[in-house]
Amino acid sequence: MRKPLPAPDPLLRLQASITARDDRLLGWLYDHGVLTTDQIATALFPSLDFAQRRLHRLTVLRAADRLRPNRAYGGSYPYYYVLDQLGYDHVHAQRGLAVRGGAEHPAGSHHRAPAAALGAAGHG
């Protein structure tokens, strides 16, 4: 019997799966902290539907994460996207910065950055 192949490194799997557009998006998320679906779709994709499908794929790959805050009087805001740990590691590798082997983002958890950005935008 053959030995099973080792599980692929998640970062290598991500890097083999993303496009130049994904790479640009991950860089923007790194630089800006948080972007909405509409901002991403308008800047990088031919349609909202295509953007949503690709963003879903990036969340499955753990390159990006998303949250959808509720409105105070019902309903919710659009999805907000932030880097997930693998996206952060990918950007560091692309930019020649040290990848800290699973360490958290410099400011702590990547889920804290959107809360500050949302509060500043009046979506608290």
Rank of each mutant, 00 (worst) to 15 (best):
R13V: 10
R2Q: 14
A20C: 06
P10S: 10
L97N: 03
P114D: 09
Q52G: 05
H90M: 14
H56C: 12
H111K: 15
V82W: 06
P78H: 07
H90P: 00
L26F: 01
L48S: 03
P106D: 13
L67Y: 02
A121S: 14
E104Y: 05
M1N: 14
G102K: 01
H123I: 00
F50E: 15
P46N: 11
H110Q: 13
R57T: 03
R71S: 03
Q85V: 05
L26M: 10
S47K: 10
A51C: 08
H123A: 01
D84L: 05
L86S: 08
D23T: 13
A98S: 15
L48A: 06
L67G: 13
R13A: 15
G27T: 06
L5Q: 12
E104I: 11
D65F: 07
I18H: 07
G124M: 08
A113R: 07
Q85I: 10
G108C: 08
S47C: 04
S109T: 13
L44Q: 12
T19F: 04
T42V: 11
L86N: 07
A121H: 08
M1P: 11
L25T: 14
P78L: 09
D31V: 07
R24A: 13
F45T: 03
W28F: 03
T59R: 09
V34I: 04
G119P: 00
A121N: 05
G74Q: 02
G96A: 07
L26N: 00
R53Y: 02
L58E: 12
L58I: 01
G74W: 01
R71T: 08
L25S: 02
Y81P: 04
D89G: 07
R95Y: 00
S47G: 09
H92R: 15
N70C: 03
S76M: 05
A72W: 08
G122A: 11
A41S: 12
Y81L: 04
I40F: 06
G102A: 02
R53K: 12
H90W: 12
R71V: 11
Y79L: 06
A63P: 15
T59M: 11
G74D: 01
G96K: 02
G33T: 09
A63K: 06
D84W: 01
H92K: 15
Y77W: 13
P78G: 05
S76Y: 07
P46Y: 06
P106K: 10
A107W: 01
P10G: 03
S47W: 04
Y77M: 00
A107S: 05
Q52S: 08
D23F: 06
L11Y: 04
L55R: 08
P78D: 11
A72Q: 15
P114S: 00
A93C: 00
V60Y: 04
R57E: 11
Q39K: 09
G27C: 11
Q39F: 05
I18C: 09
E104W: 03
A16R: 15
A107M: 08
K3Y: 11
R21I: 08
Q94S: 13
L48Q: 12
V99G: 01
